[in-house]
Amino acid sequence: MAPALAKGTGSEVIAYDRSGEGRSDDVPGPWKAPYAADDLAAGLTQLGITKDVLLVSHSLAGEIATAFVQQHPQATAGAVLVDANLPPFFTDSETARLVAANAPQIASLKKAPQTRATRQILAEAEDYGPVHRAYHALSWPQNIPATAIVSAQTPFPTPADAQLWRQAQQDFVAAAPNCRLVTAERSSHNVPVDRPDVVVSAVQDMVNQVR
């Protein structure tokens, strides 16, 4: 997708592996979005990129985008949030339900031999409840445009969770005048694979908006 985005927008496109993922080093301790946003900011600074950043963030990376825009509003031109974890979703009741639903898997992983993948899952699960209750209180800056792309299927098989996910995306865009919602029809949560055309189109529109 990066080559298509670069060609379609005439912009420099940077993709990277988050800590603990791909070829990046592991970082001990809990995973928290502000730490990941610090990593992203440091990498961009090393590349000499300190302004006009357009974030394209999928799923969990929505939390990184939200942390980044809170910490570096002057560097951020806009964002395309692809079926992303957004603050309105993580109500107290939903966060408690997610913690309870994932508890058996987390307990099993703690007992099993550790791999890089399981270490990352455990890092993301640590303090999940308090972290996401705090995340729920955050809001997107009013002056930074964002497009939220929601998948047709959502990440959840249960109707109640899926509806809350859709509603959270709607609430997110309704809270700021510079935000809009796009639905990726015929798509699972993996929108970049199922509907790359929707992502490319949203990014092109955002580039044109912020230029």
Results as ranks from 00 to 15, higher is better:
A123E: 07
E124N: 11
A125W: 14
E126G: 02
E126T: 15
D127I: 08
D127H: 15
Y128T: 04
Y128A: 13
Y128C: 03
G129E: 15
P130N: 12
H132G: 02
H136L: 04
A137M: 11
A137C: 05
S139I: 05
S139V: 13
S139W: 06
W140Q: 01
W140C: 01
P141I: 05
P141A: 09
I144P: 01
I144N: 01
I144R: 00
I144E: 00
P145S: 08
P145E: 06
A146W: 10
A146Y: 09
I149D: 07
I149Y: 13
V150S: 10
S151K: 07
T154G: 09
T154A: 12
P155N: 06
F156D: 12
F156S: 10
F156Q: 10
T158A: 14
T158R: 13
T158V: 11
T158H: 12
T158C: 03
P159D: 11
A160G: 07
A160S: 12
D161Q: 12
D161S: 12
A162N: 03
Q163C: 02
Q163G: 01
L164K: 07
R166T: 09
R166M: 07
Q167D: 15
A168T: 02
Q169T: 08
Q170F: 00
D171Q: 10
D171P: 02
V173L: 11
V173G: 06
A174M: 08
A174E: 09
A175M: 08
A176P: 04
P177R: 13
P177T: 12
C179D: 10
C179N: 12
V182Q: 04
V182K: 03
V182Y: 04
V182G: 03
T183Q: 08
A184V: 08
E185F: 01
R186G: 04
S187G: 03
